[in-house]
Nucleic acid binder design. Structure first.
Lengths: 196, 196
DNA sequence: CGACACATGTAACACGTTACATGATTTG
DNA sequence: CAAATCATGTAACGTGTTACATGTGTCG
């Protein structure tokens, strides 16, 4: 849902057309998150279908300008103040990788952890270098780089914590005892488990 | 791509059938990440189509058992040691929200930041409580909770850093000067920009 | 003219979610 | 028997990616 609302935000300043919005999105995100042009057009079509934007139908191969509607502005205002997804945390590919690796025969989880740790360290060094060389006044880029560096740092801390837990829990592939434990409060919040 | 490979990992221990894999996936991830059953079946179909798993065709309405193929095992081994996506960092909805909010007229970015900060603090408290009440021996759950808490902590640190940057950069919606700066080295790595 | 950038699209596919449909087996 | 649970699927939709098609305007 990010792109959809980001386009709304871009239109809330002034009417714009497709390619222009692609360029603006990338500029605003410090040129770090490329946005596919095709997605801009299809997303704009859906936004128009839903009444959140309207187009000046310049049919003749020219630029087709979109503007935000009052409904779109309301939707945008709501989105800006709504925290994303209160339910389960997003599925984290790296966490899944480590968790399932624990059960795969012939795989050393600790090695998997170390491989990824090394890679994350390299990534942090690369982003740090980019941050150092960045134009000082570029607030957008600085914010994006901050976010990525904080995130990568948390990944490293998790990998180290996981390594510690595994070390403490016994060095081998300990077969989980499959105890029938009480389910986590939370989780299972209406998602699936619908009484049908 | 997480689910696809996670299913491969589950099958690498022993042949299994659909619902069983849903349950195992959820158990292995500490019951925190619900997995849709339908997705299991469609993903298994795609895996079979790609030759990574094979099924014992128990056609008679009974359980349909899948097993991993040598190609599947190879694919799994590769995946476990391959760090996810070396190119741009994943698009972060919260970061996008703050970045685009800077340009939306009538919106106070600082307030947006504070709203989300409060929410993240609440989330951390909730997960911390769950962690405290969790069964001590549950390694999977502990790892998932660790990951989420580290992640949320990094989000808070980013929000605070962003607040600081905004404060320093001038309290208002500073219109970006649209300077034509040199593009970030990195980014634009073959994605889009194909010479056609 | 030919090449290139600008601008708008469409098609095909992967993945994910929700909802629905259909049998088989168990159990009150 | 009836209801619930187990088990397998399908349909529709949203989002995202890659690739292709088409037209226009500019410039060497």
């Amino acid at each position: 849902m990010s792109v959809r609302h980001a386009l709304l935000a871009l239109l809330s300043e002034a009417p714009k057309y497709g390619l222009q919005m692609r360029d603006e999105f990338e500029r605003r995100t410090g040129e770090v998150w490329p946005l596919n042009v095709g997605q801009v057009y299809t997303t704009l079509q859906r936004l128009e279908r839903d009444g959140l934007v309207a187009s000046d139908g310049e049919g003749e191969g020219a630029q087709k300008s979109y503007r935000i509607t009052p409904e779109g502005a309301a939707e945008l205002a709501t989105w800006l103040r709504t925290p994303p997804d209160l339910s389960s945390p997003p599925r984290d590919e790296l966490v899944i990788k480590v968790l399932v690796a624990m059960g795969v025969p012939g795989v050393d989880v600790r090695e998997v952890i170390q491989v990824h740790r090394r890679h994350v360290v390299e990534l942090m060094q690369e982003w740090t270098r980019i941050k150092r060389d960045a134009v000082p006044g570029d607030l957008s880029l600085a914010l994006v780089l901050d976010a990525e560096l904080f995130r990568l740092d948390s990944v490293i801390r998790w990998l180290d914590a996981a390594e510690g837990r595994l070390r403490r829990a016994g060095a081998t592939n300990a077969p989980r005892p499959a105890t029938s434990k009480p389910p986590v409060e939370r989780a299972r919040r209406g998602r699936e488990r619908v009484t049908r």
